[in-house]
Amino acid sequence: MSEIISKAGLRELAKEWIAQGKVVAGPVQTKPGLVMYAKLASADEIVWEGFVRPANSVKEFVFPRHELLCTYKMEGNRVELANDGAEIPAQILLAVRPCDAAAFPILDHVFNWDCRDELYNRRREATTVIALACESHDESCFCTSVGLSPQAERGSDVMLFDLGEEYEVRSLTDKGRALFAGKAQPSERTAPTYMGPDPRFNPEQVKQFVDGQFTSPYWQEATLACLGCGACAYNCPTCHCFDIVDEGNSQHGKRVRNWDSCQFGQFTLHASGHNPRPDQGSRQRQRVLHKFSIYPEKFGEILCTGCGNCTRNCPEGQGMLTLLTGIEHA
């Protein structure tokens, strides 16, 4: 048996969460035609329908694009370091797409294998994910090609399904149940299953190709249009490469980590001038290799949720899907 909550009731609930001092984030129309995940100043800002998915990914609430590692202060030849002791407030990510929610357990692997990244974990643990099942897709979507679906529950604490005037509420974890306890009513109604896009490629085939055809001219030919801007990676729910830099002067400042991307030429440039990945062909190949071969081999999961943001944000209209569907004819 499942539960329902009225749409007005959910809005009230979101207001309550904000009033309690929780950070609540969800899809917000930031300018005409552009919906982005953002922190809500008020529960009314959230956009529930009328778009396929936000143009960014929700990962930045757990893995910010710019994050303090420590501050330093120099006096004479002594240095003092301090860590960011700030409490991370409880945060609720609301109306998240299943392809964003699924990225969290996938990212958990890399941030916890071998040694734990506490900066990531403290945000992750403070986060509750309330996903909203998709009811539409566009030509960039390909969740069904990577083992997910418009109703995929992976990474969500609660799944919502649109029933018209109400949402069906499926609480999946204790964290999720705690948020909706006493707020949702028992119900017999369940949402029909929306099938989403037809599968577009076979990830096993992609792995075989990138492993076996590392030097294929395909990588160069298929990426001639790539500008190396990194928009695909920055808006990807699973891309997690970062850089560590100092900001400050010789007296005081901070050490921070910033998002980075394997699409940038400097990414692998050695001090000797040698660059193992000297062109966009090898850089895009690396993105495919990491997502469909390295990560599955190491952590048992594809590092891609099929959200299609790489294509939606690409100034050349390319992205993963173009590259991966092309493999069949390579």
Binding site: V110, F214, F242, T268
Partner: peptide, 18 residues
């Protein structure tokens, strides 16, 4: 001497194949 940043298997900088 692959370029590195984190040194602890997180930042994705140093991969050589798998």
């Amino acid at each position: 001497e692959n370029r590195m940043k984190c040194g602890v298997g997180k930042c994705g900088r140093c991969n050589a194949g798998p």
